[in-house]
Amino acid sequence: MSEARTAVLGEIRRSLGRPEVDREREAAAAERIAAHPRGLIPARTDLGQEGRVRLFIAMAEQVAATVARVGSMADVPAAVADYLANLNLPPHLKVAPDPLLDAIDWSARPLLEVARGGAAPEDEVGVAAAFAGVAETGTLMLASGPGAPTRLNFLPDTHVVVLRTAGIVGPYEEAWDRLRAMGAMPRTVNMITGPSRTGDIEQQIQLGAHGPRRLHIVLVDTPDA
C-alpha cells in the first residue's frame, strides 16, 4: 500500500463525505459489475440476422473498408487473390496461425505466397480472423491470443480480415457477451472500424496514417447463421 494510494483514496472519501471502509457500497459496486446491465441500445440493429449482415456491410463500406461476401471458407483464397490482383498489390500473405485460417487450403490459388505466423515489419499483407463483427457501426472485433498476433493488425499496409456471418452481432453488447463466453479477458481486444486515418492536417481526412492503408473484409456465409 503506497502512501500516495492511501492519500488519493482518502481525499476522494473526504470529498464524498464517506467513511474509510464501506462494505455496503463495495458490495453494491460488485453486484453492478457482476450483473453488467446493458444501457440504451440504438434501435438500428433491431433486425433479423440477414438484416444485420447487410447493415454491417453498409457501415463498414461507409468508413472505406471493402467487403467481399463468399459462400464458404473454400472461397477465401480466391477472394483474397482477386482483391490483391485488382489493386495490383503483392500476393504475399502473412496469415495468423488461427484455427479458422489454418483450415484454409491456399493452394487453390497457387500465385499466393503464404507464410504463417506473427507480423514482421516487412510484411505487406496481414490476414487475421475476427471473432465478431458489430453491425451497429461496421466494427470488427479481434482478440489477441496464441493464434492471433495483434501486430498483424497494424504493421502491414494491407489488412485482410476473415469473418463468418455467424460472428455478426447487432450492438457492441452482444460482442462483449461472446467475449465473456470465450473465457478470460485476452491481453488485447481490437475494435477496428475501417482502415487507419488521420485528420490532423487541416482537418482533411487521409487514410493510412500509421496503421493499414486499406482494410478488406472477407465475409464467409455460415449455414447456421
Binding site: 457501415m59 461507409q62 468508413v63 496461425p97 505466423g117 506473427g118 507480423a119 457501426t137 461496421g138 466494427t139 489477441s144 491470443g145 496464441p146 492471433a148 498476433p149 495483434t150 501486430r151 479477458m185 485476452p186 491481453r187 488485447t188 481486444v189 481490437n190 475494435m191 477496428i192 472500424t193 475501417g194 482502415p195 487507419s196 486515418r197 496503421g211
Partner: peptide, 22 residues
C-alpha cells in the same frame, strides 16, 4: 463526427503465456 473511431483498443495486463506479441 464519426460513428466510431477506427481503432478502439481494450488492453488488459501484459502478454499472456502463449501470446505471439504484446
Amino acid at each position: 463526427g464519426q460513428e466510431f473511431s477506427a481503432y478502439t483498443t481494450v488492453s488488459t495486463g501484459p502478454k499472456r503465456r502463449g501470446d505471439m506479441d504484446g
